[in-house]
Nucleic acid binder design. Sequence first.
DNA 1: TATCATTTGTTCGTATGTATC
DNA 2: CGATACATACGAACAAATGAT
Lengths: 258, 258
Amino acid sequence: MDGLQRPGALYKQVAAAIRDAITTGEFEPGTLLPSETQLIERYHVSRPTVRNAIAALRTEGLIEVIHGKGSFVRGRPSASATVDRTVTRDADGAYSTGLQGWELAEAPSIYRTHTTAETAPLLGLDEDEALFGIDRLYVDPATGTRLAYRMLLPFATAEGTKLAEHPDAESANVYAILEAAGHNLTWVEYAAARMPLPDERTALQLPDATPVLHTTRVTHGTDDRPLLLEELRTSGERARTAYRITTDSPRHLTPVRD
Amino acid sequence: MDGLQRPGALYKQVAAAIRDAITTGEFEPGTLLPSETQLIERYHVSRPTVRNAIAALRTEGLIEVIHGKGSFVRGRPSASATVDRTVTRDADGAYSTGLQGWELAEAPSIYRTHTTAETAPLLGLDEDEALFGIDRLYVDPATGTRLAYRMLLPFATAEGTKLAEHPDAESANVYAILEAAGHNLTWVEYAAARMPLPDERTALQLPDATPVLHTTRVTHGTDDRPLLLEELRTSGERARTAYRITTDSPRHLTPVRD
DNA sequence: TATCATTTGTTCGTATGTATC
DNA sequence: CGATACATACGAACAAATGAT
């Protein structure tokens, strides 16, 4: 059965055959794939070859394997949680963030850290300058999706405001405090995707082969001075960020390291 | 040398040891890792174990392996290309997109397609409704980063405008045409991350273990009617999208399938 | 609770193919 | 052409997780 043909390595042919069987509908999403033993018989190859094929489909994110149970067809997951990244304010001018509906899973952790090669240029600071770090872990109760939030607050920004004593204020409050300090706020947010570090995979409870959606938001004050950096990291497959876009006059983004 | 300790599988210990050696600085980014044979001697394990460890570091995106040459330390790549997703218009009201500086790698391909379970709700249409599809492939000449762009143009939107005959207009022109047709345009853009499909990996020339940054933009006209869908797919590690954010009054996003 | 069959995970060994220099 | 390095493939054995008996 299931003649494997010419192109390339044997395990790639097996992987392609299984991939086809999935897209054809023979193996439906959520169902169990044949066991390794069965695949060996079906394609007349050795166990290492079958395992190699399965490993390939795994890194593609097409299947999920559970020890002792088997391989499940994953079927392309569509984002289930949406994080609205627009900054809104109500009639009273009060800010609110797009994390409503997400629950804080742990108490915020506050610490002192310093700028890195990545963050320094965004904040307009030199490397290794000291700043506050505030980490929060959120969970979407509806889907269980986790989201890591980090705020990097330079001492220069906090100085002379309530933030110096309470750096763990929520985004909306931080914006309000900065505005009360006389700033005219604007924001730029960047979105990128990457594979998680091992500890990120744990913290965000990411399955195999799921990338991280990593956003970086810089708050600018009067004279475009960078005041604040906020980072958001979550499963790129289970969550997405949303941006409302309105027209703007041409303007340069603050240059960042290239 | 290099005592491997208790926790977990042997190959995971080896992977951890190599990972440590990389972060410690013993193996610097860009340099060649010891060969499989050398790693076998160094850690006193078999070849399959070493290969397993290398495979793990590979899917983490930490190293890159080139057939016949060896394993290179990748060192966390930072996005080199930024795509400004803000919609800007100059003093004359002319729109421009954030893809300036990117070069069209092939002639645009235009075809007829239909809505899917993903795209239908965003466009406010039923599934399997017919629409134009326009695909473009861009390259950033500075970095070689590739970017796949797709526009989905419902017949109902094109009808009665120049778009019916020239669906392959560029974004900025499409916006201008829709505005000339009497629409007051607003946009919402979603950002998500996922692993590439095999053909996407080829088209975008993605290395191993690199996710795709996938953005979806919906153009709304008068009465918030969805008019147009644009998708952007590129290497999440080599490119990032940028959004300028201004405050807005609270408002609901158009609901999308959950 | 304990045991067993099934299924995937880990580790060794060995041989050969193929890309790079 | 040869030396080196990674890729592919087979075989075999035991470990560990799962679910049912």
